[in-house]
């Protein structure tokens, strides 16, 4: 690996000023499971960093907290293990626990952070479809203070985000899911583990009796960024939670996706998977919703 200057700030403000000073030649480092690989392989989407600003000493970035009033706050530096094993996440944000719980190996999950997963902006990022269905907001800190962005507006393309070079993703905020909400995330991979999603699907349904009051469907690895399947959501809204509704929504989700053919799968197969997986996950989410109601 080519060398670089290494900085280990202890506060967010310090980290931001280091990024600002570097004027674009620095990169923040979180768990390293994406960035270090890209640096080793000279495969960064940005110029090789002259400075690495490691975030591992920034205690403000850690922690996962839940309250019934404010919902879930996840520090960008929380690891996949922190997220996937957190009792409130498992209980109230099952889709997110499922997304964080499939990233690489245990080793990866102990290193990789949710902020890193989001900021690396891979179309296949496993935590992003769940964040989308929970209407998460990204809290961003820069030299001029904080700003908040709906997670859907955070992604600009593969590896590209709304962050300026001197900004950091500080935390993710997820509102409390309404009573009667069930959600789930699943991805398809050739191996059972240690793989990148060929397709990832997250859904969230809020049921009132048998009617769908609120629906979210989000897809990974089928477009330049993870995306919400808007026409699938429209096909669910206000409809009965039935197999027929789910089939229509699944069909719509496949239409919403714009997959490419690459080394991991063809566009056809991806679109087919979106349909199959969306239908299955909607049924699962509906079951879960009924369980919570």
């Amino acid at each position: 690996m080519r060398t670089f200057e290494y900085k280990a700030p202890e506060t967010i403000d310090e980290a931001v000023s280091l990024l600002k000073e570097a004027g674009g030649s620095a990169r923040p480092l979180a768990g390293g499971t994406d960035l270090v690989v890209q640096m080793k392989e000279r495969a960064t989407r940005f110029p090789y960093p002259a400075t690495i600003v490691s975030l591992d000493r920034v205690s403000e970035l850690r922690g996962v907290d839940f309250s019934e009033t404010d919902g879930l706050r996840i520090g960008a530096g929380a690891t996949m293990t922190d997220v996937a094993t957190h009792p409130a996440v498992r209980e109230r944000y099952a889709a997110l626990a499922e997304g964080a719980g499939v990233v690489g190996s245990l080793q990866t999950m102990n290193m990789a952070t949710i902020g890193g997963n989001v900021c690396n902006a891979a179309p296949s990022a496993d935590t992003v479809p769940p964040l989308l269905v929970y209407d998460a907001k990204a809290v961003i800190v820069g030299p001029n203070g904080r700003r908040t962005l709906p997670i859907a507006e955070f992604f600009r393309g593969p590896g590209e985000t709304a962050l300026e070079s001197d900004e950091l993703l500080a935390e993710l905020r997820l509102p409390v899911p309404a009573t009667g909400t069930g959600a789930a995330y699943q991805r398809n991979t050739p191996r059972k583990q240690m793989d990148i999603a060929v397709v990832g699907v997250a859904v969230a349904l809020t049921l009132s009796g048998d009617a769908i009051e609120h629906a979210r469907v989000a897809l990974g690895a089928v477009a330049p960024t993870p995306l919400r399947a808007m026409s699938a959501e429209a096909a669910l809204q206000g409809q009965p939670a039935s197999e027929e509704t789910f089939a229509k929504a699944a069909e719509a989700a496949a239409q919403d996706s714009t997959p490419i053919t690459d080394i991991r799968a063809s566009a056809d197969y991806r679109r087919h998977l979106v349909k199959v997986m969306t239908a299955r996950l909607l049924a699962e989410a509906a079951n879960r919703a009924k369980g919570t109601a």
């Binding site: 480092l29 390293g32 270090v36 690989v37 690495i52 490691s54 591992d56 190996s105 102990n110 290193m111």
Partner: peptide
Amino acid sequence: RIVTSCLMLAPQ
């Protein structure tokens, strides 16, 4: 916690 030490930088 177990990690893949090939991806962790020494200063970390």
